[in-house]
């Protein structure tokens, strides 16, 4: 069985945030404005985390891109009272907007804070609606949304390979963030395929997961900085 996972090499990452913008464009996430940002209600399925340690001049800053971890034991799924968020057979944690009642149990349960409530009706100027991606829906006010590993791309990739009568190969399905990464710091693929890059990198001595001790078993694996 396929288990989709992502590896982010922090040693190669340059914190440029191309992934952040690519995600917003691909998934019809509305741009924030000053009021929404000041309320911490802006939606970024993928965002950059910043940790600063030490005092001048011995300062260490870590910049970590954070998508949904797509945990193998997702706390958000356990708390959802209506089954609006589920983990699929290939490990992608989804969010079914039609079912979501906006109770925000999941936003509280998620230790990585990847779930975002739509506090407002998403707004775009009329002109910018032309850039909507037809493969992704617009989420209404009052539902929770999250990173889906661009699962619409998976649907389309499957369709494509079926039409070409072949199996899904590496590179057929890649989320928007991974596709744009200018320093090739992000990898995406099957965590169960021993010949794949992701499988091998996930077993590197530099590999770690965020908040690993919580037992959520994330499928986003980071590679630490340095030699």
């Amino acid at each position: 069985m396929v288990r989709w996972g992502m590896v982010i090499d922090l040693d190669k990452c340059t914190a440029c945030q191309a992934c952040v913008v690519a995600c917003q464009v691909e998934n019809n996430v509305p741009p924030a404005d000053p009021t929404i940002d000041a309320q911490y209600r802006a939606i970024h399925w993928l965002r950059l985390l910043e940790y600063r340690e030490g005092e001048y001049p011995h300062v260490r800053t870590r910049l970590i891109p954070r998508p949904c971890m797509h945990c193998d034991k997702p706390p958000c799924v356990k708390v959802c009272p209506v089954g609006a968020t589920n983990i699929g057979s290939e490990g992608i944690v989804d969010q079914i907007y039609g079912r979501c009642i906006g109770c925000r149990y999941c936003t509280t349960a998620c230790p990585y804070t990847v779930k975002y409530m739509n506090w407002y009706r998403p707004r775009w100027p009329e002109e910018m609606k032309k850039a909507f991606n037809p493969d992704v829906t617009i989420r209404p006010k009052g539902v929770v949304e999250k990173c889906t590993f661009c699962s619409h791309r998976l649907i389309k990739a499957r369709e494509r390979v079926r039409a070409e009568a072949r199996e899904l190969g590496p590179g057929d399905y890649i989320p928007a963030c991974v596709e744009t990464c200018p320093s090739n710091a992000m990898y995406f693929g099957d965590l169960e395929n021993p010949n794949g890059t992701v499988f091998q990198l996930a077993r590197s001595h530099r590999a770690f997961k965020l908040l690993e001790d919580l037992g959520t078993e994330p499928k986003v694996i980071y590679l630490s900085e340095g030699e």
Partner: peptide
């Protein structure tokens, strides 16, 4: 055929 939610929901 797959009945994963994300097979159809987007």
């Amino acid at each position: 055929i797959k009945t994963d939610c994300i097979a159809c929901h987007r």
